[in-house]
Simulated assay, not measured.
Amino acid sequence: MRTALVIGTGLIGTSVALALQSRGVQVHLSDHDPDRARTAAAIGAGTDEEPDGRVDLAVVAVPPAHVAATLAEAIRGGRARGYLDVASVKGGPRRDLEALGCDLTGYLGTHPMAGRERSGPLAGTADLFEGRPWVLTPTRETDTEVLNLALELVSLCRAVPVVMDADAHDRAVALVSHTPQLVSSMVAARLRDADETAVRLCGQGIRDVTRIAASNPEMWLDILSANPGPVAEILSAVAADLDETVRALRALDSGDKDDREGGAAGIEDVLRRGNAGRSRVPGKHGAAPTAYETVAVLIGDQPGELARIFADAGRAGVNIEDVRIEHATGQQAGLIQLMVEPRAVPGLVEALTDRGWSIRQ
């Protein structure tokens, strides 16, 4: 691949362009808003000038509702050797293209499983896709050259290719992406009118649950409008769990012993099913989840503190598998939670204590 055309210079399109440019591909940028394309070009994502002729690959990075029309225009204009889109739903756009009578041999639907709460070209980064799954949905009609171009794109973006059926993909992302977005937003919505005293008690748990609720509503309306059926099915199952949980909680408040025992059993059931589901989430580097131990350390909010604690852990020969920071409300300090292999805990605690760190059990 020597040349590419990226149509749509939001977060994903600009990030694709930045990754390709950094690896020697000449990228041309196009957007319905010329200012966005100029902004992407200004940060090094390519040029907003039209290509002289046909490019090797056209990447359509527009909202799902506009994918088919944008692709159809590009295909009919013969703008590239191969065409793909990066929308978060796959079945609908392909069916729309078929209805428009397009030749789909040169098209492949894809979806990089990466994103941020921010949007727009200035949110783009060349490393957005590194190590992340990138779904490819080829069919029997897909030309081998287009599949190879898509695999080359994934490689240049340093992502991991995953081949799936388009409709299976849409059901999967409804479960692991679209429904969590709505549930996160619903929980965060409870905070909007909450008493200020309650909000001040927010800790890491509520921050984790509501992190993605900061996402752009217009963008998510586009995504959910393109995949409403599968999301509704999963939310219906979640709603059934909520109804059962509400009944169990009411029973816990009952004066009847049998009711309380039944309520406790219902709550325990949903919590244990949650444990089982959480244990299936892939761990580090996509491997099976590993049970790490947590070493909590008091850390000041000053420049260089994170570098110092990581360096001290490194000198102790301990690899930090994961890390979280829990900020203390109203204080210039917080707890850093270092996740390590269980056998590494004693040595890490001893080393950090010797270097003056305050370990919190």
Rank of each mutant, 00 (worst) to 15 (best):
A61N: 03
V281M: 13
P180W: 10
A248M: 09
L108I: 15
D301F: 11
L182D: 06
L242H: 06
D103I: 05
D167N: 02
Q181N: 09
S22C: 07
R95Q: 15
A189Q: 13
T294D: 00
G82K: 09
L338T: 01
P303Y: 06
G205F: 04
G356T: 12
D253F: 09
R247I: 08
S184P: 07
D312K: 06
R2G: 12
D322G: 03
R116A: 14
I267Y: 12
G46E: 11
L348N: 03
P34Q: 11
A265Y: 12
V162T: 13
S184D: 07
D256F: 12
F310M: 05
E244N: 09
A194Q: 03
A248Q: 09
N227Q: 07
V238E: 01
A313C: 00
T139R: 14
R81I: 03
A41H: 03
L149R: 08
L271D: 13
A296G: 01
A65R: 15
R200D: 11
A41V: 04
E141P: 00
V231I: 08
S30L: 12
A172R: 12
V345K: 07
V160Q: 13
A251V: 01
A65D: 14
V270Q: 08
A114R: 00
S15T: 04
L5C: 08
L271A: 15
R192E: 07
P93Y: 06
S30C: 10
A166L: 02
S225G: 15
L201I: 11
L151P: 04
E326M: 00
T139D: 13
I336N: 02
S215M: 07
G131S: 13
V6I: 14
D354F: 01
T197C: 04
T197G: 08
G131Y: 13
N275H: 14
F129D: 01
S88C: 10
E233N: 06
I359V: 07
V183L: 07
Q332G: 15
R200G: 04
S236L: 12
E145T: 10
R360G: 00
V349E: 08
R79D: 10
R158P: 04
S30K: 14
V238P: 00
H32E: 10
M164W: 14
T294V: 11
K90G: 06
E293F: 08
T142D: 14
F310A: 13
E152G: 01
D103C: 05
A311F: 11
R280H: 14
N148T: 02
P133L: 11
S215T: 10
V231T: 12
T3Y: 07
R116V: 08
V297M: 06
R190W: 06
G8S: 05
L147F: 10
A4G: 03
R343C: 06
L5P: 08
G304L: 02
S88L: 09
V238R: 02
G347L: 05
V60H: 04
L97V: 07
E98N: 06
M219T: 10
G8C: 04
G274V: 11
G77P: 02
S88E: 10
V89W: 06
A150F: 06
S15I: 08
Q181L: 04
A150I: 09
V246I: 14
L128C: 01
E196A: 12
I223F: 05
P64W: 06
N319C: 06
L298V: 14
D143N: 07
I43F: 01
V25W: 02
D258R: 10
N216E: 14
V295H: 03
M339Y: 15
P63K: 04
I234L: 15
M186Y: 06
T353H: 04
M339Q: 15
A226L: 02
E321I: 00
D35H: 02
